[in-house]
């Protein structure tokens, strides 16, 4: 059995031997990983706009139609709604609620997988009928930015599976759950980034 407090060696002084949230090193590590990832996405998004403004008045160029909006909006609703069960799971384990933790994570996983399936199996094939990443700079930016985000969703799904295996084995309790917090932080980040991807790639060509 793990101890919750340990002696420091000073007379009668004990400190917690577990750490969550901003007490934990891992939480800060994730926060700074997200900061550098945000810089990564910002660079690609700014590059998109740079290419767009260097490209002349017609965007998308070369007779390509502005992207279809309906499906990306449905995908957005699915992706953003996945943050709710993840958030509830994160809240639940702070109270030690194992059932809500497990089902919240599972629901988040299924919604994320649904988003990714729609992107790769439905949206990309229909876009590829019209242009590819090799057609022109517009196509390259389209697939690089959405693909980079998709890759992050994929990593998030792997992360989710990793946390869930441990959640279903009962590894977390109200004192030890920083992995759940870190997963939730990463997942919310990927969802927030999607807003900027959506506005840049799908909405802005209609403006």
């Amino acid at each position: 059995m793990e101890r919750d407090i340990e002696p420091t060696g000073r007379v009668d002084e004990f400190l917690p031997s577990y750490a969550n949230g901003s007490t934990s090193f891992a939480w800060w590590g994730m926060a700074w990983l997200i900061a550098t990832e945000a810089a990564l996405f910002a660079t690609v998004i700014v590059s998109y706009w740079y290419i767009r403004f260097r490209s002349g008045p017609i965007w998308p160029p070369d007779g390509i139609a502005a992207p279809e909006l309906a499906l990306p909006l449905v995908m957005s609703a699915i992706l953003w709604s996945s943050s709710i069960p993840v958030h509830l799971a994160d809240r639940a384990i702070r109270r030690g609620d194992q059932r809500r933790l497990r089902f919240g994570l599972l629901a988040g996983l299924l919604l994320g997988a649904a988003f990714l399936s729609l992107q790769f199996a439905v949206e990309y094939p229909s876009v590829l009928d019209e242009f590819t990443a090799r057609t022109n700079a517009y196509g390259s930016m389209f697939f690089t930015l959405t693909g980079l985000h998709g890759l992050h969703v994929l990593v998030g799904l792997a992360f989710s599976v990793w946390v869930q295996v441990r959640a279903w084995r009962g590894a977390f309790d109200e004192r030890r759950h920083v992995s759940v917090q870190n997963f939730a932080m990463y997942w919310h980040f990927v969802d927030v980034v999607w807003l900027f991807v959506l506005l840049t790639v799908y909405v802005s060509p209609h403006l």
Binding site: I51, A137, M141
Partner: peptide
């Protein structure tokens, strides 16, 4: 990350024929 993105673009262009930096393909 900005250097990383610049080099990822460069490799995508060199290895797969993407267009970021070539004016012919709409890049800069």
């Amino acid at each position: 990350p900005v250097l990383t993105v610049a080099n990822v673009f460069l490799e995508l262009e060199r290895k797969f024929g993407f267009h970021f930096y070539d004016a012919d393909g709409g890049g800069d």
